[in-house]
């Protein structure tokens, strides 16, 4: 079964992700030099940015999955089941990544800008993506698990993309007083570059592995539900 093989990539991805995380940790702590002005705390940055990039990607993927779901959604269509499972998986992984971003971000900001939180465009965008993901999961949990409930969540993921564009634009114009942070200021040191790309790659592999495993689990969940229902129907007659 070709499909089973693709989906069965979960464990292999998980092993790769573990290796990548270990290597990234090594690069962050032993290869990259300690940054001059911020000191040791700057090392938060590597996994922070890695999580942030993947959170945005997860949200985009969730929106695309929602769109495909709404287009292909017919009772029992295989494609719609797969994209639906991908939608849940990306949202849950996205919330986890968002939590990492929103915890590590203020820790970094406290040292870098002297404040825990500022309504800087990137921070605000991360927070709003996190909130949209939480709303998506609330819909999945409480709006019913039928075709309709899944559709509402997919609709939110789809309409979330233009909304985020507007939020980003509005927040960029909002203040004007906040300092525009130069993120990659010190990244020309080779050791830092290595640690940076290693941790972005590691977080990407972790995200993909988690999404694949969770999506497969969701598909199995649906199959189990179907089997249970058909068993129930069989007993009734």
């Amino acid at each position: 079964m070709n499909k089973a093989n693709i989906i069965g990539a979960g464990p292999i991805l998980a092993i790769l992700a573990t290796a990548a995380v270990l290597y990234a940790l090594y690069a962050v702590f032993f290869v990259a030099p300690i940054e001059a002005t911020m000191g040791f705390v700057q090392k938060i940055f590597y996994f922070h940015v890695g999580s942030a990039i993947n959170m945005m990607l997860a949200f985009a993927l969730c929106g695309v999955a929602g769109l495909v779901f709404l287009v292909t959604e017919r009772a029992g269509s295989r494609v719609s089941r797969v994209v639906d499972a991908i939608g849940v998986a990306t949202a849950e992984v996205g919330v986890t990544l968002g939590a990492i971003v929103l915890v590590t971000g203020p820790l970094w900001a406290r040292k870098a800008w002297g404040t825990w939180w500022t309504w800087e465009p990137r921070l605000t965008l991360s927070l709003m993506i996190f909130l949209l993901f939480l709303a998506y999961l609330a819909l999945r949990a409480f709006a019913g698990s039928d075709r309709f409930g899944r559709g509402v969540a997919a609709g939110l993921a789809v309409i979330g993309l233009p909304a985020l564009y507007f939020i980003h634009f509005a927040v960029q114009r909002w203040g004007g007083a906040h300092p525009q942070v130069v993120y990659k200021g010190g990244l020309n040191v080779p050791g830092m570059k290595l640690a940076f790309f290693a941790s972005v790659l590691a977080m990407s592999l972790v995200s993909v592995a988690l999404i694949v495993i969770r999506a497969r689990q969701e598909l199995n969940n649906r199959r189990l539900d179907d089997l249970f229902l058909s068993l129930d129907a069989g007993e009734g007659t």
């Binding site: 819909l139 709006a143 509402v152 979330g160 909304a163």
Partner: peptide
Amino acid sequence: AMLMNARMKEVLLPLVTFPLLMP
């Protein structure tokens, strides 16, 4: 309209619309 038949509609509706309406 989408949440018309949802249980807990009253709670879910603002949870969903407020982030979208932030702009």
